[in-house]
Write a protein that binds this DNA or RNA. Structure first.
Lengths: 184, 184
DNA sequence: TTGCATCTATCAGTAGGTAGATAGAATATC
DNA sequence: GATATTCTATCTACCTACTGATAGATGCAA
């Protein structure tokens, strides 16, 4: 991948996590990278190409982090803290999860990108199901791994959303407390 | 309030809950109501005026529902189910909570509307704190009312977001199970 | 000299917003 | 009661700004 292309992706990702896809234009993106908007089209012919790249890259990165955490020889408590920390790091920059953001804009995505977006959620949940299943002896809740996985991800996405509006981190903290309380 | 104005608000709210503020234009709004876009400006001089009206109206309505539920002589289990049902009813129409949607677009709101949006979350949480406090003998979790309130609202907002993308209602169901499991 | 990367210039479409006119209803004045 | 004025709700027409996108020229490096 060329250096320019990577810079474009970095700037676009940053912008999309703050302002959403609608707040991301070829012109401002070009300005920030120091080229003309027509040159951005050289790398990403249509906006949906850029969108696809961002979703794919973000998902890949995110799942790699999750896999890395899961593969450690840690207690569930430590793994969950590490997972939640991914979201905390997004929050301190006043950004959203890219896929949480795009979930709000889903009506403006084409079919291909909708499927990629859906996969972010289901693939992440799949990993979490495995995690909760493998560590089920460390849980004192009698809930299924699926319910825990889905609640955790949705809870963190919602917490990011609401915390940014209110301007604190109370909801992210609450989600953390909630899940920590389920551990032995 | 005139009949036209109410129709405008209804159509705008519907549209905003599906496509967001960016997907809501004066022209399409006008078309759907059967007038010209300039006539929409007669009722809402600027888009931020329309936005403010929608947030205020949605919040008022939402809090009234919550208050109504809270004032019933019901067990906590039944009250929580009724609260969650508010979100389930939004989900079946493939919409989002207006304020959850706008939370994603918060960077494009002016200060006044950001404050109104923030108040939606804090005011709702306040009601939930009261609810959990008044019914604390029906809980078997040792979590604070604040943590429960914040987790519940954020969890439901995130569940709406993700469920719409994935195309099922699994996350909303998971949130429901999660909170039902906390009751005696 | 071929191909990559970038440019200039431009297009059609849409956005929010404004100006000014108009028809009819309501209200005030004589 | 008739006339004049103001208000309400709408229209046509237009503006500026910005959007994504395209065509074709240019420079430059392998």
């Amino acid at each position: 991948m060329t250096e320019k292309r990577e810079r474009l992706e970095n700037v676009a990702l940053e912008s999309a996590q703050r302002k959403g896809l609608n707040g991301l234009s070829f012109r401002t993106l070009a300005d920030e990278v120091g080229i003309k908007s027509s040159s951005v089209h050289y790398y990403f012919p249509e906006k949906s190409d850029l969108t696809r790249t961002l979703i794919e890259r973000y998902t890949q990165n995110f799942l790699a982090s999750v896999d890395s955490i899961a593969s450690q020889n840690w207690a569930l408590r430590k793994k969950l803290k590490a997972f939640i920390a991914i979201f905390e790091n997004v929050a301190v920059e006043e950004k959203l999860c890219l896929c949480g953001m795009m979930a709000a804009e889903v009506e403006q995505l084409d079919d291909g990108n909708r499927k990629l977006l859906s996969a972010f959620f289901t693939d992440t949940e799949e990993r979490l199901v495995t995690l909760f299943t493998e560590h089920k002896d460390e849980l004192n809740a009698e809930l299924s791994a699926k319910v825990l996985a889905r609640s955790l991800l949705a809870g963190l996405e919602g917490a990011l959303l609401a915390d940014r509006v209110v301007g604190d981190n109370h909801r992210l903290k609450a989600q953390k407390e909630l899940f920590m309380a389920m551990l032995k």
